[in-house]
């Protein structure tokens, strides 16, 4: 089997190529619109994207690379541009990707279903294609050559025109490395109250994270700060969930924590069935009390 990996970030390329080695004899990495990545695959097919085009529109080139390489399995990074490319490639091949694969077994993969409310095993009837998030495979196992094959960008008819771009500032947050995390949810009705969580975090040497709604719609946190099935998956020693109801979409992101502490004013909140220590009450009472005592 020959795997065709579509990735744009070096970390993801490492993990996916290492994972691809466990299912295929040879690995081709296709990088579009980002610097070529070497040392992780047998060959890196590199497609440069002209300034006025978008990487997503490189799909004709990607399809010809796939055909030329004679690959028979696809693994793609879970990031927007690779998602567009794997979508176009699988469409051209008459197949569809299995997304959110957490384990690959031949043509089958296990995936989350309803954000972790279930586990689904799916089978690819045609060319298997998998979309894989970060942390599924061990990137340190990646091996490969320095071979880079340049391939020209072929614009489709009706190409999207890029007028400009602006780099997003890098968020100053590192949840993955944190020993402790204080996570804030919609139970915070006022942005100013987040200081209560920051005070506790300072005491614990913790990072402050959040549930998805606090990073979306309201911009109280950067996107990198939300924990869950579509955000960061963390496993700190201590996880303090404040004003978080405990929906599966959130909990699958923190279930690996050693100790889970929950504060919620609703005694029936699902989080109380998924924590070690819980307090039924107002976070405005509980957080200062914890900060004072620890």
């Amino acid at each position: 089997m020959k795997a065709f990996v579509i990735a744009e970030n070096e970390g993801a390329a490492r993990e996916l190529c290492a994972g691809a080695r466990t299912v295929a004899d040879s690995v081709v990495l296709c990088v579009v619109g980002a610097p070529a990545i070497t040392g992780v695959a047998d060959v890196c097919v590199h497609i440069d994207v002209p300034a006025g085009n978008i990487a997503d529109d490189a799909y004709l080139s990607v399809k010809s690379a796939f055909d030329a390489q004679g690959a028979d399995c696809i693994i793609a990074e879970n990031a927007l541009r690779p998602l567009s490319l794997v979508g176009r490639l699988t469409a051209a091949l008459g197949t569809a990707a299995i997304a959110g694969a957490t384990e690959i077994n031949g043509t089958q993969a296990s995936t989350m279903y309803f954000g972790g409310n279930g586990v689904r095993t799916a089978n690819a009837e045609a060319i298997p294609a998998f979309i894989v998030g970060s942390g599924v495979f061990d990137g340190s196992a990646a091996t490969g050559t320095d071979t880079v094959e340049e391939l020209a960008f072929q614009a489709p008819a009706n190409a999207v025109i890029k007028q400009g771009e602006e780099a997003l500032p890098k968020a100053d947050i590192n949840l993955a490395a944190a020993d402790a995390i204080v996570a804030c949810g919609r139970g915070f009705s006022d942005e100013a109250d987040l200081q209560l969580a920051r005070d506790l975090a300072a005491k614990l040497g913790a990072e402050v994270g959040c549930s998805r709604p606090l990073a979306e719609g309201v911009d109280w946190f950067p996107k990198e700060a939300y924990i869950g099935v579509s955000g960061a998956v963390v496993s700190p020693k201590t996880y303090v969930a404040c004003g978080i109801s405990g929906q599966m979409q959130h909990m699958v992101g923190c279930n690996g924590s050693e100790v889970v502490i929950a504060v919620n004013k609703d005694k029936n909140a699902p989080i109380f069935k998924q924590c070690d220590y819980g307090f039924v009450g107002d976070l405005k009472e509980a957080l200062p009390a914890l900060t004072a005592a620890l």
């Binding site: 569809a96 089958q108 279930g118 586990v119 089978n123 690819a124 998924q274 070690d276």
Partner: peptide, 16 residues
């Protein structure tokens, strides 16, 4: 092109 082989509840996490 993709079909469901099985659907099941996730393994429960043991908490106090």
């Amino acid at each position: 092109a993709v079909s469901t082989v099985s659907l099941a509840a996730p393994a429960a996490v043991d908490r106090k």
